[in-house]
């Protein structure tokens, strides 16, 4: 695989571990500096990652970074995973049923992070950490040495898969905390209602 850069993204291949039923597989992360309206390139301390593996979280991102750039400490990781049992949700647009059902006192945007589907944002403690991580990744990718051990991406721990994950899955809610949530959000709704009036 010769592609190391795709547009402004660095392509980082990571190795997914195999199981007794399936062999290891290459997975590709597309990485660049995270730039937003509020955060210019000169200020950002986050990396934007396209094509995150299933269940990507702070822990396995941290583990990855520790393999490629020791010393680049991450502060947080946010992601938007595709999750749509009926394949109906359009992740490319924001749909706020609350606002649509009542433009005046509907709730504000429900999706607090505006990360595109399948992508993640890893934020480092500081800009140096971020720069270190990115340059290490670039170095790793550009080096043609084959003896270089590829970084591994650990998908899950055993406790996160199989029967541990799927036994007794249910959506049961705790009546007490649910009751509190309903109360507070109804209060907020009433407030919005009053404001409009």
């Amino acid at each position: 695989m010769a592609i190391k850069q795709l547009r402004e993204y660095t392509v980082l291949p990571v190795l997914l571990p195999g199981t007794r039923n399936i062999s290891k597989a290459w997975h590709y992360l597309f990485i660049k500096k995270h730039v937003t309206k509020d955060e210019a390139e000169s200020k950002t301390r986050s990396l934007f990652i396209v094509n995150i593996p299933v269940g990507a979280n702070f822990n396995n991102m941290k583990r990855l970074m520790s393999q490629v750039a020791l010393g680049a400490n991450i502060e947080s990781f946010q992601a938007c995973e595709y999750y749509d049992p009926d394949n109906v949700i359009n992740y490319n647009m924001d749909i706020n049923l609350s606002k649509l059902s009542n433009a005046d006192f509907g709730e504000e945007n429900l999706r607090d992070n505006r990360i595109p589907v399948g992508c993640g944002v890893v934020t480092f403690l500081d800009r140096d950490g971020m720069n270190l991580a990115l340059s290490s990744i670039k170095k790793l990718v550009m080096s043609s040495k084959s003896d270089c051990k590829p970084p591994e991406w650990e998908l899950f721990t055993d406790k996160e898969t199989g029967s541990s994950r799927y036994l007794g899955v249910n959506n049961r809610l705790n009546a007490g905390s649910l009751s509190k949530d309903v109360y507070s959000s109804m209060k907020a709704f009433e407030k919005r209602e009053h404001e409009v009036e």
Binding site: G18, T19, I22, S23, P53, F156, D158, T161, G162, S163
Partner: peptide, 11 residues
């Protein structure tokens, strides 16, 4: 790989 991995010991 990810699908099978999720299934863990069920697979």
């Amino acid at each position: 790989n990810q699908m099978v991995c999720l299934g863990g010991d069920l697979v």
